[in-house]
Amino acid sequence: MKKNAGNVPEHPMENLLRMDRIPHIWCSTCGIGTAVSCFIQALQNFDYPLDKIAVVSGIGCSGRIAGYIKLDSFHTTHGRAIPFATGLKLANPELKVIVFSGDGDLVSIGGNHLIHAARRNMDITVFCVNNFIYAMTGGQCAPTTPTDANSSTSPYGNFDHPFNIPLLVGSCGATYVARWTALHIRRLTRSMQEALEKPGFSFVEIIAPCSTLYARRNRLGTGLDLMKFYHDNSVIQHGAPLESLDIQFQKKIIVGKFIDKKRPTFLEAWDQYLGKKLGDKFISAEKGIRAA
C-alpha cells in the first residue's frame, strides 16, 4: 500500500499500526478491530515510552492482533501468550508487556497459565477478546460458549457450562478486572488505559461480535444486530459481585469494573522477600547481565 499518497491525511493511528500489513484479516463487523482501535487510543493516552511496550498474542483471530501493532510484538503458540509474556517481562522488567488474545486461547488451552499468572500477580496486562466461539477454526464450541448456543461442535446446542472469566481471574488474585463490550468504546478505552497503568496482573474482558460464525450459527443477525443487542442488554454495574457475572445465552450482560486493588507483583515480592532474607548478598533481577 502506498504510504500517504497525494493529499490523503495520515491515519491517526499510523504510528502504532503496521500499515504495511493492512488490510487485516478480520471479517467485516468483527469486534476485534474495535478492540484494537480502543487499545491504540489507550496506548496514546498512556504515558509510557512506546519503545518499551511489547504485545504478545496466542493463536486465533485475536491472536493476530500482535501482528498489526507497531511495537515489539510476538505471535506465539496456542495458549502460551501468558507464559511467553511472563518470560519477556521477567527478563526485561522495564518493559510494559501486554497480552492480547482470545477466549479460547487464554481461558481454554491457556487456562492454567491464566490462573497462575493471576495468582503470582505477574506484572502484565491481559486483554481478552471474548466472542464465545473458536472463530478462526470455523466456529467450534469454547469454554465461553453460553449454554444453549450453537456451534459447529455443539450442533444441537451447548449443554455444557461456560466460564465466568472475571470470577476466575478475580478469585486467583488479579489486581484489576473489568468487562466491556465492543460497543462501549469510550469506557473500554478508559478501562484499557487503567489496566495498563495498574501494577500487577490486570485483566479486561472484551465481549465482541463474531458475525461470521457465532451470529450466523445462532441466527442472531448481523454484527450490527449484535451491537444493538449489547446496547439493549448491557448493564453497567461497577463493583458487581464476581459470582453475578455469568453470561447466559442472549440474556443481560453485566459490564463494568469489578476489581481494582493493590498487591505486590511477582517482581516486587522477589526483590522484597529475597532482599530481606539474603541482605547484602542479594542481587536484584534487574542487575543480572543481558545476553550481550
Partner: peptide
C-alpha cells in the same frame, strides 16, 4: 542477579524461556 521461576507446567516453562530470551 536474574530470575528463577517455577512455572505451572513444562508447556509454560518452555514458552517463558522463549519470551525471556527475547527479553534479552
Amino acid at each position: 542477579g536474574g530470575i528463577f521461576i517455577q512455572m505451572e507446567d513444562e508447556l509454560g516453562s518452555m514458552a517463558a524461556v522463549v519470551g525471556a530470551s527475547w527479553g534479552g
